[in-house]
Design a protein around this nucleic acid. Structure first.
Length: 528
RNA sequence: GAGUCGUUAGCUCAGUCGGUAGAGCAACGCCCUUUUAAGGCGUGGGUCCUGGGUUCGAGUCCCAGACGACUCACCA
């Protein structure tokens, strides 16, 4: 019973205090090398003779992760998170007090040790411990499991527990730790790349009167001082363009945005968005920029532009789920395709079939348009406008085929209220999205800088809203005023950072990338 | 929001036909001064997710609820 374990451990804590070794009273325990460094520099650090044992000392601290007690001697591994090293503890060298203290330690406690390096009979490089300092007491059993030859027994595998108690996940599961470190590297590489390209990093408001720049329902909250309702931002777009209007030609922001929508393996109500805007740049410039960014990030995070990942091809539930090795080279240019041409290639529906909403609906009714792999089809009556239907066709028939990095160019007017019209294709805009592994990575367009056009687009969105689309873009007079004062031609792009990490690491769930994903509270009672 | 499946010891999991709760690890005690999934002997530990119902009797069957996973819908 957990209370029993807890009281046992509190009793051990009390005894440590009686011995004058209160772990919580210690403030610092300096040591120079990580476990990995101790092992790497072993030959130089280990004493060559008994005389040197007194002078060639090492110190190390970490969490006790395994114990093998043998009466008056013991072995135990201490982990600093990244690596672990074995300690050898002997009663007649530690003395009565420290030996008792060692026996009061449990797996999960932090401990500092001092001693000299040596090799055990079985050949493991270890620390011969001559002194130890308890540094924290764990009041619970750590669900660490055991391992041998890289195979793990037991351990913490319940995903609910792993997400709710991420600290335990990080201690017990090396993969969780690996993803955290990889994400940090990737984000750092992104910042470096923008810095190298002369971009300025800015921060814009999270609290906004109207949440614009994307199609999503916002979170609502209240600002007491002004007694006004405000919304949490759903994108970074409009404020960043107002900075472009202020003649700062290259800006980017990495920030949290909030969308009041459901949770799935690719969605979380809050996520980290990267957006950047570059004056005097067009779509082709941005594509090249994305290619360069991804190549740089891959190089910094993995040391190569060639990223290999194991992807589940069956049910991830299944233990023997088949996997497929996918390799992508971010050193190569991405495939570039036209949206309408790709739809025609995968559905047989050409421009003539998709000229108007009515044409498209009757074409869908007349022909059996079914995705041969997933068996999915489209409900023609679900869409309010042609653009929505076209994007639906893209999602169902084209997206799953875009495994290798691909730019899809040319998005419909109705779903692109902030993108310039394509002068050569009525009803279409100068917009592209980048896809990897069948999932959207980025969304970019030539930004509208014509304030009259932008006003008309917002008005079109207001019509959609009146038609029942509560995610249609709101009117934003402040933004229009900025445009009326002049914005240079500008290319902009957005990338979901969490999803980018997910795509590059082969993770199947966004929640593996988010340290603390949204979870329903335990014991929640619905008020309805 | 809808459907399917799941929830048993701190962790990972068994539990047959409805008959009164099991294992390994972890914990506790004893032995053990070079072990590494250490070993040997012994001990304790359960709101079987919650609440109802059926039954002489429910971990097991029925109903409702909580939470999770997956699929779908919305979205990036």
């Amino acid at each position: 019973m957990s209370d029993e374990i807890r009281s046992q451990r509190l009793a051990k804590l009390a005894r440590l205090r009686e011995l004058g070794l209160d772990p919580y009273a210690v403030e610092r325990f300096p040591f120079e090398r990580s476990a990995d460094q101790l092992l790497a520099d072993f030959d130089a650090l280990a004493p060559q003779s008994e005389d040197e044992q007194a002078t060639k000392r090492v110190r190390f601290a970490g969490r006790l992760v395994s114990q093998r007690l043998m009466g008056k001697a013991a072995f135990a591994h201490i982990s600093d998170g990244d690596g672990r090293i074995q300690g050898y503890f002997k009663k007649d060298e530690l003395g009565e007090t420290l030996w008792e203290a060692f026996n009061l330690l449990d797996i999960g406690d932090h401990v500092g040790v001092e001693g000299f390096l040596f090799v055990t009979k079985t050949g493991e490089k270890s620390i011969h411990v001559t002194s130890l300092t308890p540094l924290s007491k764990s009041l619970h059993t750590l669900p660490l499991g055991k391992e041998k030859d890289g195979q793990q027994w037991y351990g913490l595998s319940d995903v609910d527990q792993r997400y709710r108690h991420r600290n335990l996940d990080l201690v017990c599961n090396p993969a969780a730790r690996r993803l955290l470190l990889l994400r940090s590297k990737i984000v750092r590489a992104v910042r470096e790349f923008f810095d190298q390209k002369g971009f300025v990093e800015v921060e814009t408001p999270l609290l906004q009167l109207e949440a614009g720049g994307a199609a999503a329902r916002p979170f609502l909250t209240h600002y007491n001082a002004y007694d006004i309702d405000v919304k949490l931002r759903i994108s970074l777009e409009l404020y960043l363009k107002r900075i472009i209007c202020g003649d700062v030609p290259k800006v980017f922001e990495i920030g949290r945005v909030f969308r009041n929508e459901g949770v799935s393996n690719r969605h979380n109500p809050e996520f980290t968005l990267l957006e950047w805007y570059e004056a005097y740049a067009n779509l082709e410039d941005i594509m090249a920029f994305v290619e360069g960014l991804m190549a740089y990030v891959a190089m910094q995070a993995f040391g190569t532009t060639i990223v290999t990942m194991e992807l589940a091809t069956g049910e991830p539930e299944d233990e023997d789920c088949p996997t497929e090795t996918v390799t992508m080279d971010f050193g190569k240019p991405w495939r570039r395709v036209n949206l309408m041409e790709e739809i025609e290639r995968h559905t047989g529906l050409g421009r003539a079939d998709l000229a108007t909403l009515e044409d498209a609906k009757s074409a869908l009714r007349e022909r059996e348009v079914i995705n041969p792999v997933t068996g999915k089809r489209i409900d023609p009556d679900a869409e309010q406008h042609l653009g929505g239907l076209i994007e639906k066709l893209l999602e169902v028939f084209v997206e799953p085929t875009l495994v290798q990095p691909t730019f899809v160019v040319g998005y419909p007017l109705e779903t692109s209220p902030l993108a310039k019209k394509d002068p050569n294709n009525p009803g279409m805009t100068r917009r592209f999205e980048g896809y990897i592994r069948g999932k959207e990575l980025c969304n970019a367009f030539s930004e509208i800088n014509d304030p009259i056009d932008q006003r008309e687009r917002f008005e079109m969105q207001m019509d959609h809203r009146a038609g029942g689309d509560d995610e249609a873009h709101p009117m934003d007079e402040e933004f229009l005023f900025a445009l009326e004062n002049g914005m240079p031609p500008t290319g902009g792009c957005g990338i979901g950072i969490d999803r980018m990490v997910m795509l590059m690491t082969g993770a199947e769930h966004l929640r593996e990338i988010l340290l603390f994903p949204m979870m329903r509270p335990v014991g929640h009672v619905d008020e309805d």
